[in-house]
Amino acid sequence: MAEMSNGNFSKTTSIQQAIASCCGAIITSLFVTPLDVVKTRLQAQSNPFPKGKCFVYSNGLMDHICVCESEDIKGWYRKNGHFKGTLDAFVKIIKIEGIKSLWSGLPPTLIIALPTTVIYFTCYDQLSEALKSRLGKDNDHIPIVAGSLSRFGSVTVVSPLELIRTRMQYQKLSYKQLHMCISSKVATDGWLSLWRGWSSTVLRDVPFSAMYWYNYECFKKMMCKNLGAHEPTFFIAFTSGAASGSIAAVITLPFDVVKTHRQTELWESETLKIPQSASTWEVMRKIIAKNGIAGLLAGIVPRLFKVAPACAIMISTYEYGKSFFFHLNEKSNQHP
């Protein structure tokens, strides 16, 4: 695999980077979605979700709010079968419901995940190259700055789309009804209401991206040196992605817990009239008061099982895609 982080980067176009990130997003979704479907089914089996309540469903690329027994979900998380564990759940779901059930919720995920991933990865590479020309290619701050800014931009752009998608899942609406619903919400609460929950997402995703890219570049350089590789291989990119993703996931977990509370609270407040919390910090204080510091670390194991493979698959596929286009461009230049 050619190392895109150095001089080779300039030989891949932004369109080629976008295609590589799209391929990475699709492959990541195909691999990781079944893991989260099984996890959600096991959770629903041990602690059934009551009708009208919400839970967060995530497949490694996107988080989704699912309202229990809504029309679009059709109770996929309540299907028949008692599962003894993860492997048993995989076997029984395939046997009883068919293999397609393992990819429940994949289409709406890709509709939002693809533009998010394209913006995020393409911006990261473009910003990295711009900063390298000014600060030097070995500057340690480049991954932190580029990772933070690219994630901030992608979260801000896509946040209203996620709110709209969740609204459509919560209540089956035609596009005309959806437009009227959004228009009335904007008229009542202003345009900023379309970015509700944005602050919690930024507090989780921007630090995650800064740590992820910094550690990824460090691990990649270290492994290349230790293995005597002039260029990072698929294995190096995969391992570096998994390790850096795991570290970032653990450190940012408290903000992920807060984001989950705020997202589910948003929809429950509309149906059950629960007052919304004023801020991210207030939600954090409530969680600590109720469950102690341990409450901010809830779900650490499933988060690691989701994030580590998702990061590994995404970055290694993306790097491989860029490598493919780099060699393709090189051949084209040699044979005009």
Score class of each variant (00 low, 15 high):
201 T>A: 15
45 Q>M: 11
5 S>I: 14
249 A>H: 07
43 Q>R: 12
96 I>N: 11
330 E>H: 05
62 M>A: 09
104 S>D: 15
156 T>Q: 03
263 Q>N: 15
269 S>P: 02
25 A>N: 03
71 E>F: 11
44 A>V: 12
305 F>Q: 04
263 Q>I: 02
264 T>V: 05
18 A>E: 03
54 C>P: 05
90 F>K: 02
76 W>I: 09
328 L>N: 00
80 N>W: 12
127 L>E: 07
35 L>D: 01
269 S>A: 12
119 I>S: 01
46 S>L: 05
171 Q>H: 15
213 W>H: 11
199 S>T: 12
76 W>F: 12
91 V>L: 15
22 C>A: 14
74 K>Y: 06
168 M>N: 09
89 A>L: 04
77 Y>V: 02
129 E>S: 14
148 S>M: 12
199 S>E: 13
314 M>R: 07
164 I>H: 04
306 K>W: 01
167 R>Y: 00
84 K>Y: 09
142 I>V: 07
64 H>N: 10
41 R>S: 03
312 A>W: 00
15 I>Q: 08
298 A>G: 10
234 F>H: 03
4 M>G: 04
206 V>G: 04
295 G>Y: 02
200 S>E: 08
285 R>S: 15
36 D>P: 02
23 C>N: 05
73 I>H: 15
142 I>S: 00
170 Y>G: 14
105 G>I: 04
179 H>V: 07
289 A>C: 14
21 S>M: 00
79 K>W: 11
284 M>I: 11
142 I>A: 00
289 A>W: 12
162 E>P: 03
85 G>C: 01
143 P>Q: 06
4 M>T: 03
63 D>F: 12
229 A>W: 05
286 K>G: 13
290 K>D: 15
238 F>K: 03
41 R>C: 09
46 S>I: 08
190 G>D: 00
249 A>E: 09
70 S>K: 02
134 R>C: 08
244 S>E: 02
307 V>T: 11
330 E>Y: 01
30 L>Q: 05
331 K>E: 06
303 R>S: 14
107 P>N: 05
57 Y>H: 12
317 T>E: 00
261 H>R: 13
106 L>C: 02
73 I>N: 14
152 F>N: 05
31 F>W: 08
106 L>T: 08
116 T>K: 08
212 Y>W: 11
313 I>T: 04
164 I>A: 08
126 Q>R: 10
10 S>E: 12
252 T>I: 06
334 Q>D: 11
69 E>T: 07
78 R>M: 11
122 T>G: 07
317 T>M: 12
152 F>Y: 09
311 C>W: 03
133 S>R: 13
307 V>W: 01
277 S>W: 05
129 E>P: 00
289 A>M: 14
249 A>N: 14
154 S>D: 10
173 L>P: 03
15 I>L: 13
285 R>L: 13
191 W>V: 04
222 M>S: 13
326 F>H: 00
58 S>W: 06
101 S>H: 15
23 C>G: 15
263 Q>F: 09
226 N>I: 09
48 P>Q: 03
49 F>T: 10
84 K>L: 14
314 M>S: 12
52 G>M: 01
23 C>W: 08
108 P>D: 06
20 A>I: 02
25 A>L: 04
143 P>K: 01
265 E>M: 14
291 N>G: 11
303 R>L: 10
131 L>V: 04
125 D>G: 07
221 K>T: 06
265 E>N: 14
